[in-house]
Simulated scan of single mutants.
Amino acid sequence: MINIIIVSEKMAKPKTLGLLESIALLLGLIVLPVVLTLLFITPQQVIKSQGVKAMLPPHLRGAMLSTQNHLDAYAKQIGELQARILRLDAQNQRLSKLAGIKSGAEPISQRTPVNELLGQGGPLVKDSPLSEEDLKSTIEKMAADLDLRDEYQGKLEAKLLLKSVLREMLPNSSPVEVAYSSSSYGWRIDPMSGHRAFHEGLDFPAAVGTPVFAAADGIVTMATQTPDYGNLLKIDHGSGLETRYAHNSSLLVKPGERVMKGQKIALIGSTGRSTGPHLHYEIRLNGNPLDPREYLRNHS
């Protein structure tokens, strides 16, 4: 039997503890240091472990941050593409009804919108984050789907305009007596930046001095030099329809002048942001670019 005698100045006589009381006191003396260690030492270890990245060499720390930034950028791009696809799907559905196109006549990708993912589910098994290659592949597929939706929307707009009261004023005549190049309306690799960019018109390559003609009757609203378009000519055809003729070597008409379809208005050149002599030709409706190919191929 263990007897612990406690002597204190405040006690009139010494106090003797029993076995259970003695064991409880000893356990208290043992446990107290452990508790103090957990309270004061463990947080410091957690802080140290959380600061491991800060202790890495700068080049390794920079590589980790760079990789994460790349993944964040890819994820943001996917979100933006999804939003654009959803908007295009909604717009194309409305345009299809206006154009009298029956359901099921649209492209396959148009009939399988991205929001179909909202109807999926199931237990999460072997979950793992997408790799950088997975994200790139997803972006490429979504970009291709977006291209198809853009092209389909251009066809719908052309059908609506050809049926509307604007059909008589449509710029459906070729602006130059040469064929347009493969660098046509839509997404392409920009010849100067090397990046993927949207081309808002058609390019007609031809020798410097080749005549450019008005694609429809209208009023010249701009005849000036700009950094990107070079010598630029704009013609207003009414009701928000406009044509643009860019990179010319010289302009033969002035703002405010009325022109007729087929009238010579400029000469081809390579001014502005251009890699060689050609005509850059655009059709716009209320400032938005249209695919000129749809109007040239519907011209009879």
Rank of each mutant, 00 (worst) to 15 (best):
T275Y: 02
V259S: 00
Q77I: 02
A144T: 13
N231C: 05
G230R: 02
Q153M: 14
S103Q: 09
Q225E: 14
M1C: 08
R84S: 15
T221W: 03
G240Y: 07
P227I: 04
R244L: 15
D217F: 02
R149A: 10
V259P: 01
R94D: 15
E80H: 00
D217G: 00
V114L: 08
A223P: 12
H247W: 10
E9C: 03
P292Q: 12
S137W: 03
S184W: 01
L26P: 10
G209N: 09
L135D: 08
Y74C: 12
P255E: 08
I265V: 14
K261D: 04
E106H: 01
Y245L: 08
L290C: 07
S182N: 14
S131E: 09
Y229T: 07
P292S: 13
N69H: 08
L20M: 12
P227Y: 05
V46D: 11
L71D: 13
K159E: 11
G238M: 08
L71W: 03
P113T: 10
K261T: 07
L65D: 15
K141L: 14
L36F: 09
V208K: 00
I23S: 02
N3L: 08
D228A: 01
L71P: 03
K76E: 13
A73E: 14
N172R: 06
T37I: 09
D150T: 09
P175H: 01
Y229Q: 09
S274P: 11
L202T: 14
K76R: 04
S193I: 13
K76N: 09
P107A: 03
S96E: 15
M1N: 10
V253P: 11
P175N: 06
A206S: 14
T221A: 00
I219H: 03
A216F: 03
L124E: 11
S131C: 09
T243F: 00
G238T: 08
L29V: 14
Q45A: 04
G287E: 13
I85C: 08
G276I: 09
R284P: 08
F204W: 07
I268W: 01
P289H: 03
A24Q: 11
V34I: 15
V220D: 00
P175Q: 04
Q91E: 15
E116R: 07
E242Y: 02
L27Q: 15
A24G: 08
K155A: 12
A63F: 00
A24R: 07
L290G: 06
R87P: 03
L267F: 02
P255H: 03
G18E: 09
I268F: 00
G186S: 04
L148K: 05
Y295P: 06
H280L: 06
L148A: 10
L162N: 14
I219V: 10
Q120F: 04
Q120V: 10
F198C: 11
E116A: 06
A207V: 15
A75D: 13
A216Y: 01
L279I: 10
G194A: 10
E106T: 01
L233C: 10
M11K: 06
L26N: 12
H195S: 12
S183R: 13
I101P: 04
I189C: 06
G104C: 11
L160Q: 10
I78S: 04
M222G: 01
L241F: 05
